[in-house]
Amino acid sequence: MTEQSPPPPRRTFHLNLNWLGVMPFALFVLLFLVMPTMKIVVGAFQRPDGSFTFANIAGLFTPSILSSYWISIKISVSSAAIGCLIGFLMAAAMVLGGLPRGLRSPLMTFSGVASNFAGVPLAFAFLATLGPLGLVTVFLRTEFGINLRAMGFNILSFWGLTITYLFFQIPLMILIVTPALDGLKREWREAASCLGATGAQYWRMVALPILFPTILGTFALLFANAFGAVATAIALTGSSLNIVPIMLFAQIRGDVLGDPHLGYAMAFGMILVTGLANVVYIVLRMRSERWLK
């Protein structure tokens, strides 16, 4: 508010009414999003009696918990990065590759389906395909004598999980980046080529910088998406793979860590990681977007 004489009472009254309009929403968000999250954050710094401590956070620094974070981050980064790359290539092929326009609508619908086809059923689909008795595994073994297992591939592993997550990561990228690719004006490309730029130079100096914020934002989203994915991981691996969401799930179910407040700390760690990923995104985006209003 600017410095003015106090507003007349009528205006204050109106202002209050306007705020009331979003009260149900605010209340809902407070009760079912903000407070539960805060409860975790605060709990991570509390002893069971409620006093302040760093002990829970310090408790995270055990080899097994640290390695679970490390594997989780690796899976999330790789599935987000590969998902962004492949999704980008597929969207670019669709938008800029001179393919029939009619392909587009079914592909976007399919992307909508696949990006929502996560969780337990997705795990089953991949078990049926790349599991020990899966379609592809058996086909490669009987037709080509390629034994995936002997080559060190296991669906219950880092790569197995990454490949599975790509099933919802790639379509999500396609859904988000397609409108951005549509936003690239044909004239930019033509102007660049008139000025002597090769296709690669156009992409490096014009198209990619323009798309960068979108790609970065999608990467952050895909990262969080993979980092918090519980159902697929549990259905796929049971508890054989030591990643954060699985550990936290087991902890909530049965306090496997033997310390309820260590669970808070683990959950807090998850918020911290996804939060950090988004802070990095926001900072990079602000730096890369000086040219936007």
Binding site: P36, K39, I40, A224, G228, I252, G263
Partner: peptide, 13 residues
Amino acid sequence: VIPAIVVVFGYIR
């Protein structure tokens, strides 16, 4: 951004 498992953990507590 906030994983569902964290939110539901908060609910339970």
